[in-house]
Amino acid sequence: MKQSLAYLTDPLVKANPITLHILGICSALAVTTSVSTALTMSCALTVVLVLSSAMISAIRHHIPTAIRLIVQITIIASLVIVMDMFLKAFAFEMSKRLSIFVGLIVTNCLILARAETFARQNPVWPSTLDALGNGIGYGIILLIVGTIRELFGAGTLLGFEILPLVENGGWFRPLRVMLLAPSAFFIVGFLVWIIRSRRPEQIEQPEFRILGHDETGEA
């Protein structure tokens, strides 16, 4: 029971896919200009992740070695196509705002990483929990970034005005940079910084040492 819970809760902060593994950054930059797109994207990704992990885990003993990755991608891609069509049918406006990024869930390294490293080696239930935890962990970061960007970039949250804008007679002058992709980079960077200073065990060992100008590098 405790172990099951850990599958679910570990990816939230301790092993968060975005801040620890730095996976799924592309969509984290692209869809976080507003909370609603971030929320929809997180839900879509979580559904695809949970279903694909469960399916891959269920057939894990029988996936032929030679076509392992292709089989995984086929399963993920089918789920993504259906998810994309589902959004187009029932959340048309939202699917237009997410444009190609729903389709790009196929190439989101987060999903393949969970399939490769976890679902392929673990039973169905832990894989499902792990996928759910990773989906939620991804969603938390997207929501944090989306909240900051929408609040300071447009003065709204979920479309409701929180900070009255100057152009509507208020006092808040929106920070346009927040609506551009680099701001998401900065925010994710700050989140990584905060988490790693609270949890120093996440800090990676440098792969090489930068030499001072008076060192030759020879022992």
């Binding site: 003993h61 029988h62 996936i63 032929p64 070695t65 030679a66 076509i67 292709i70 089989v71």
Partner: peptide, 11 residues
């Protein structure tokens, strides 16, 4: 899982 038959049928 290395068998050719299984790979083809599975695919």
């Amino acid at each position: 899982n290395e068998s050719l038959t299984k790979t083809l049928v599975f695919a």
